[in-house]
C-alpha cells in the first residue's frame, strides 16, 4: 500500500517537473517548485513509514519550512526588482 502511494507521488513529481521545465512564466516554475516541495515532504513521510523508520519526519518538517521560505524569497526578489524597474 505504501508502495502504491510512493509510486503515485513519484509520478506526480515527474508531472510537476514537466511544468517546471515548460514554464512559460517564472511563476509557473515557482508554482511547480512549490508543489514538488509539498510532494517531496509527503514522499519522505510515506517512505519513512514504508521502511519502518518514522523518525525521518524531522526531514519532512525541515522541507515544509524550506520550500515555503524559498518560494517567498523568489517572489520577494522578483517583486522588489520589478518595483525598482518601475520607479527608476
Amino acid at each position: 500500500m505504501y508502495a502504491i502511494a510512493t509510486i503515485l507521488i513519484l509520478v506526480a513529481i515527474a508531472v510537476g517537473l514537466v511544468r517546471a521545465f515548460r514554464g512559460p512564466t517564472l511563476f509557473d516554475r515557482v508554482m511547480a517548485g512549490n508543489m514538488i516541495g509539498t510532494l517531496t515532504v509527503l514522499l519522505v513521510a510515506v517512505l519513512g513509514f514504508m521502511n519502518g523508520r518514522p523518525e525521518f519526519l524531522d526531514i519532512a518538517l525541515v522541507y515544509v519550512l524550506i520550500s515555503f521560505i524559498s518560494t517567498i524569497a523568489v517572489l520577494r526578489v522578483y517583486v522588489s526588482r520589478h518595483d525598482h524597474a518601475d520607479t527608476d
Partner: peptide, 8 residues
C-alpha cells in the same frame, strides 16, 4: 528554483 528542486 530548479537548483533548489535538484537539492530536494
Amino acid at each position: 528554483m530548479l537548483t533548489s528542486i535538484y537539492s530536494l
